[in-house]
Design a protein around this nucleic acid. Structure first.
Lengths: 304, 304
DNA sequence: CGTGATTACGGTTGACGTAATCATA
DNA sequence: TATGATTACGTCAACCGTAATCACG
């Protein structure tokens, strides 16, 4: 199970083609074929069906492992590289769409005032991309949002020792089109909406899988999958009646055509955490500490 | 970063010797030396100091990643192997010491009555060993205990898709020698004991690191490290005044020389979970379901 | 000096590319 | 029949073992 083989396997499975994967990875078609054959031989199971190229059951199982595995591998390499790197005068910041806040923009402005030479870059992307980037060192600091039990840490993929600091919490709300029968309600239980149609927007806030585990209920059928990080687009889809979504309450203040209903059960919060490599006391650690102290929430914790 | 190199690296670091690692792994001294050299060359950093052999800072960092990485790799292989394996008439059960209960023994007796041909084996071991074994398929089912917030899942290392089911919860207690000044108290806050001396018994219940993250407090100095899985030995050490420990309340019923004080803050429970590969409906899944329904606690959840 | 890590060197194995073959839409 | 996966085979690098060298205790 050489990581190279694993990498070509996920590429092939992702692209659905040996030759496309070969181009992507800079191999020949033949090498890719040999990689897959080696993996299948090693594990003693067929991993892909050919023509069309689709994962078998065993292949699907392997895919679940391969992603986190390769991520961890990159994270390990980046972690060591960081120890040796010279502390450059730059701060690259990743933000998931719903983690953006006025407190962040203000703290960032302060920091810029104090350290005029500091080159600041901000990038927004989906959850997985942001976490991946901070783990691999492309980002110095990430602000990630998600749903969790009150004062509980977010459930993030394990990528090694990253320092996670809570920087904000607020109640989530179910977003409905303005004319929806439930629109007048004070509050709803999530399980009561388990059979309603939901928009699955994994790059924005609360994906369907997360809803299921939070509620312990296997429902939440998906009406539409929304790939992208623009919140206004998602709100527009809800307003047009395509389905429901779960968003932090404050997002709805300047949204029209929709209403937000408080969630009465299960008791959860929309939480934002700052994620950075624990090492060093650069601008990333400084900004994270500032954001945390401005919130004065739960203490720092190091993810195991 | 070939897994083989990683494996020899952790072995060398663990044994503190190149030649001992070579014997352990069936390599020659030279090969081990070349492995380490290759890793150091690849990462561009010294990983080990020689004579004596101790990890450098970068090496220590890599060690934090290497363990989980290799575990995941084994888990992936085992996961695929399970898909192909014939369902043998055997149930191998792993239990951490504090997860053993009369409900388990009773359910096991029931199962044996219903399936007389079933070969049942029970093994007790420390947390990490048990989790590792169920991930790699050596165990069909594991019962693991730990401390968590009420009705929260345990914090276990990510090894891929395992089904975790809560099967018991009870309040934890701080264990003190009978003559201790606090022995008469109704309850204590854990942070108030942050400066007391603790016995670190990672194979039994609540290790020092876990105490720290649960409390968000950096104290809990260790008086003594207890390596082993015998609970009576740990209780004896507490009775003799070597230090404090945190154990589930029920353990203290038949212990003498010690008293247990309830923990008032933070609000935590001692929780037991059944861990097994989600695939198939063998005796492992059956027993897990029985234990869970006997408790009727929180619903199943699949670890991401 | 002796134990134990490193370096030098050679044989074998394995990986990748070229090119021919096979299979499927 | 054309696109795309597999197989055959040659080359080259990488890996590991033997053995000589080096270095620390």
């Amino acid at each position: 199970m050489d990581p190279h083989l694993l990498r070509t396997f996920v590429t092939v499975a992702g692209l659905g083609s040996f030759s496309a994967a070969a181009r992507e990875l800079g191999y020949t078609q033949s090498a890719v074929s040999q990689h897959i054959a080696a993996l299948e031989n090693d594990l003693g199971a067929a991993l892909l069906l050919r023509r069309p190229v689709v994962p078998t059951e065993a292949g699907a199982r392997l895919l679940e492992h391969a992603g986190p595995l390769l991520l961890r591998l990159d994270a390990a390499r980046a972690d060591i590289a960081r120890l040796l790197a010279v502390p450059a005068g730059r701060l690259t910041l990743g933000v998931t769409p719903l983690a953006m806040s006025s407190r962040l923009t203000r703290s960032l402005a302060e920091l810029r005032g104090e350290q005029p030479g500091l080159a600041i870059a901000v990038r927004t992307a989906g959850h997985s991309a942001v976490v991946r980037s901070v783990a691999t060192g492309e980002l110095d600091l990430a602000l990630v949002d998600g749903i969790a039990a009150p004062s509980d840490p977010l459930h993030l993929p394990e990528t090694g020792p990253l320092t996670a600091t809570g920087v904000a919490e607020e109640p989530p709300a179910v977003v409905l089109p303005a004319g929806h029968p439930l629109a007048g309600r004070e509050g709803v239980r999530l399980v009561d909406l388990g059979d309603a149609r939901w928009i699955d927007a994994p790059d924005i806030a609360v994906g369907r899988d997360r809803l299921r585990t939070v509620c312990g209920y296997d429902g939440f059928p998906v009406s539409l999958r929304y790939e992208g990080t623009d919140v206004r687009g998602l709100v527009a889809l809800v307003a047009a009646g395509h389905g429901l979504a779960l968003l932090p309450r404050s997002v709805l203040e300047d949204a029209c055509g929709v209403v937000g209903i408080a969630v009465t059960a299960p008791r959860t919060v929309h939480r934002v955490e700052a994620l950075h490599a624990g090492t060093g006391t650069g601008p990333a650690a400084l900004l994270a500490a500032r954001l945390a102290s401005a919130w004065s929430g739960t203490a720092d914790l190091v993810r195991a």
